[in-house]
């Protein structure tokens, strides 16, 4: 059980897919203009990553090394299709907002990278922990990023039509935070902050890397 928790926690902090491993960035920056969209994106990724970890890990002895990548892709694509159709049916507004980003979860290198680097070599129990941990790490960062951008960029947070939080009326909202440059800049500061925190707590510099090859998706 302790091992399970350790694997789960690693995805959230020390090996966070976004701020440390630097995988799956595209969707993060693009959908973080609204907390609502970011939250659903996070949930979609947790679901796809968790479920595909289970399947990949449970069939790992049956799948030959040579055809593993296409097999992973088909597994992931099936779960993404489930999310695609479910969201379209139940939360059409969010679906329209996320648009092309839902099908793009298939090629989100985070999911293929974890299947390749972790689930394919580990028992189901740990693969689930890794999937849920990495998914949660992704969801936390994307929601934080969206929170900063929506609150300070537009002065209020609107969630499913309800106004959750708003700044005082005279607040001059710098719209640039909601536009695309804001995403890069706010995320740059979040990465710097995580690097600083990780160095303080672990006493070592955690190398941030920005690689998206299947071959080197982690350890």
């Amino acid at each position: 059980m302790r091992e399970w928790i350790a694997v789960f926690k690693r995805g959230i902090a020390i090996d966070n897919p976004l701020t440390v491993l630097m995988i799956g960035l595209c969707a993060t920056l693009a959908v973080s203009t609204k907390v609502e969209g970011a939250l659903f994106m996070g949930l979609a990724v947790i679901f796809v990553l968790g479920m595909s970890s289970v399947i990949v890990s449970s069939i790992r002895h049956l799948v030959p090394e040579k055809v593993r990548i296409p097999v992973f892709i088909v597994i992931i694509a099936s779960f993404v299709t489930i999310v695609d159709l479910t969201m379209k049916a139940f939360v059409p507004d969010v679906y329209d907002f996320l648009g092309v980003w839902i099908p793009l979860i298939v090629v989100n290198c985070m999911i293929l990278g974890r299947a390749e680097a972790f689930s394919y070599h580990n028992p189901v129990r740990l693969a689930v922990a890794d999937g849920l941990g990495m998914g949660s790490g992704f969801a936390i960062v994307i929601v934080v990023l969206a929170f900063i951008r929506e609150l300070f960029g537009s002065g209020e947070i609107v969630f499913l039509g309800a106004n959750l939080l708003s700044l005082p009326d005279g607040y001059p909202a710098p719209g640039i935070l909601v536009l695309f440059p804001g995403a890069f800049i706010v995320f740059g500061f979040i990465v710097a902050l995580t690097a600083w925190y990780n160095r303080r707590t672990t006493g070592r510099t955690v190398e941030t890397s920005a690689h998206c090859t299947i071959e080197e998706g982690g350890r």
């Binding site: 995403a183 890069f184 800049i185 740059g188 500061f189 710097a192 600083w196 941030t208």
Partner: peptide
């Protein structure tokens, strides 16, 4: 020091996207 490497690359990309 803290901004070296990737964080600074993000800020640069932000400025480029302006």
């Amino acid at each position: 020091e803290a901004m070296k490497g990737i964080p600074m690359a993000f800020i640069t990309a932000g400025l480029l996207s302006f």
